[in-house]
Write a protein that binds this DNA or RNA. Structure first.
Lengths: 197, 197
DNA sequence: TACGTTATGGACGCTTCGTTCAAGAACTTC
DNA sequence: GAAGTTCTTGAACGAAGCGTCCATAACGTA
């Protein structure tokens, strides 16, 4: 060992993430990140490499957090699976309508960079697939509990719900109000195939 | 009159739009636009003002074109309304899966700028509302023709379809393949309430 | 205490950015 | 053809971009 780091890596990464989140990749300068993290250029480049490298690191962490969040919200016992699904999607609708919130970083980064940066597009795809997986697991629990038609294709339905999830995010960005986003979500949930009784 | 313009305004705007479309607002330089349009800086600034002004002009035109396209695809006689709806959404799914296509400019601009530029967010919202309106009209035609349950709320369903439309765009950006996007679309269409028989 | 190693902070270089400007060209009107 | 107006070209400018470098500081080890 030699001289130890004076900054906390995690909080520095969070500050950098928030900058990218707010102003996008091209719109964020390394000077702004240096100011936000409180790091000098030397520390910044020494610890994280260049701008692209830093973004990849930040983005990777964020994608993992997104997947974890989906899993945490959606997994659990069968009895309350449908309730969790409803809460997850309606919560998302409410969050997307918040004016302060600057939307989802995955959506923003994918829109800006996916076509130019294969690392980003691959990471985005994996993230979506994993969220869909979490949704699939939840829907299967719903089926076991009799909330969803047992013959339905859970994976297909999960794909649709993921799509709705991403669409809500897009509409929220444009300023669609909360009640609209929530009622769209409810319409989507109402369209799920219910079991015969 | 004095010296006439040597360039075609529309094609210059299209070239500018394509640049913004490809590399985003912050990622596009006026030099790049000058090169793409073939205009000198003087002409560029003289004709369109600054960067932001030019983007607003380009974006406005594009939003109108988007709305027109939705209306053109979705309006018509009642008999083929559902067929047109299916074609519109499936066509969109296929287009979004095209790797060459750089996604929807409305989505990209909204993601990058909506939170910082009220002109953009307002224009995006109006665009979405008008596409939803086109979808609503189509669904009402479907109801008259007996393809959709007559008691269903067409506006609610249109909101859901708009959301799916935007979600498909988001997933396509990440690289989701065509067959997946199409089958999600089909699942969404299958979830629409059919009339009792 | 001396030395090697890593971290820090900011000045620096080079490039690119958005925008302005001056000189000249093309047109209309008188 | 002279005057007036608008358009074109491209150089120039200040600001800001990314990344490097260096003197200094703070540790471990000998």
């Amino acid at each position: 060992m030699a001289r130890p780091r004076e900054f906390d890596e995690e909080s520095a990464l969070n500050a950098a993430r928030d900058q990218f989140w707010m102003t996008g990749y091209a719109g964020t300068s390394m000077d702004a990140i240096a100011a936000a993290t409180g790091l000098g250029k030397g520390s910044l480049y020494g610890a994280f490499g260049g701008k692209r490298e830093l973004f990849h690191r930040v983005y990777d962490d964020h994608c993992n957090a997104t997947i974890d969040s989906a899993n945490r919200h959606l997994s659990g016992d069968d009895e309350q699976a449908f309730e969790r699904l409803t809460a997850y999607l309606l919560g998302h609708a409410t969050a997307c309508a918040e004016r302060r919130q600057h939307g989802c970083l995955v959506a923003k980064a994918t829109a800006e960079l996916a076509e130019h940066d294969e690392v980003v597009s691959a990471r985005s795809l994996i993230t979506f697939e994993n969220v869909q997986l979490a949704l699939t697991g939840n829907l299967e629990a719903c089926q076991r509990n009799g909330d969803i038609h047992p013959a339905a294709d859970a994976q297909q339905l999960a794909g649709l719900l993921l799509t709705v999830h991403r669409g809500i995010e897009a509409l929220g960005k444009a300023g669609t109000d909360e009640s609209t986003l929530r009622s769209i979500t409810e319409t989507a949930l109402a369209g799920l195939p219910r079991p015969p009784r």
